[in-house]
Computed example of a mutant assay.
Amino acid sequence: MTRYEDLPYRQCVGVMVLNRKGDVFIGRRSGGAEHVDATHSWQMPQGGLDDGEEPFDGALRELHEETNIKSVTKLAEVDEWLAYDIPAAIGKKSWKGKYRGQTQKWFALRFTGVDKEIDILRPAGGAHKPEFVEWRWEPMRNVPKLIIPFKRPVYDRVVKEFAHLVK
């Protein structure tokens, strides 16, 4: 049996969506193995890449599947992939022990639509199961403290990389 430390990382994308004021879209997760308490259940849209999918295409797909958002323009991306390890007890539940964590390519997008476009209860027109039970716009500086602690270093880095996008 493979040691947990030797397992691969799951390839994913993450999306920081900024509204016109410079606030960030965050959603509160509806549950899952990573949902450990009410304070740290918020996150930005993120998810796994499909086989052969380009990261930016995956970011747009994941964003639509989780939020229904399509009205965006690309602002920036983090040059390298950012990784985090998930605690073994959670990883065994959420990914059946296949991965030790995630490596993520992060993008910053400007939301150019109106808030009524956002539909977390019927994302992608109802074609996908909801992942969030509520959402809000949050000042960028506040986002890392709302995320589950083992993901916080990645979120700190994403905020640092994209801070120049906020007026």
Rank of each mutant, 00 (worst) to 15 (best):
M1F: 10
T2C: 03
T2H: 07
R3K: 10
R3A: 08
R3F: 07
R3T: 07
P8V: 07
Q11T: 11
C12G: 04
V13L: 09
V13M: 07
V17P: 01
L18Y: 15
R20N: 12
R28V: 04
R28T: 08
R29V: 08
R29C: 10
R29W: 10
S30Y: 04
G31H: 12
G31Q: 11
E34D: 13
E34Q: 11
V36D: 04
T39C: 06
S41C: 15
Q46A: 13
Q46W: 06
G47Y: 02
G47Q: 02
L49W: 04
L49I: 01
G52F: 05
F56E: 13
G58V: 01
G58I: 00
A59E: 00
R61W: 10
R61T: 05
E62R: 15
E62C: 11
E65T: 12
T67N: 06
N68A: 14
I69Y: 03
K70T: 05
S71Q: 07
T73Y: 07
K74W: 04
A76H: 10
E77L: 00
E77F: 03
D79E: 15
L82K: 14
A83K: 09
A83Y: 05
Y84L: 05
A88G: 05
A89F: 11
G91H: 06
G91D: 01
K93A: 14
W95L: 02
W95T: 05
K96C: 07
K96I: 02
G97L: 04
K98W: 03
Y99K: 05
G101K: 03
T103F: 08
K105G: 00
F107A: 02
F107H: 03
F107E: 00
R110M: 09
T112C: 07
T112P: 02
T112F: 08
G113V: 04
G113E: 07
V114P: 00
V114A: 08
K116W: 07
D119H: 09
L121N: 09
P123Q: 03
A124V: 01
G125A: 07
G125N: 06
G126Q: 05
H128V: 02
K129I: 04
E131T: 06
V133D: 12
V133H: 10
V133I: 11
E134W: 03
W135Y: 14
W135L: 03
P139S: 09
R141S: 14
N142C: 08
V143C: 11
K145H: 13
I147W: 06
R152Y: 13
P153M: 07
V154E: 00
V154Y: 00
Y155R: 01
V159T: 11
E161P: 02
H164F: 13
L165M: 09
K167D: 15
K167N: 14
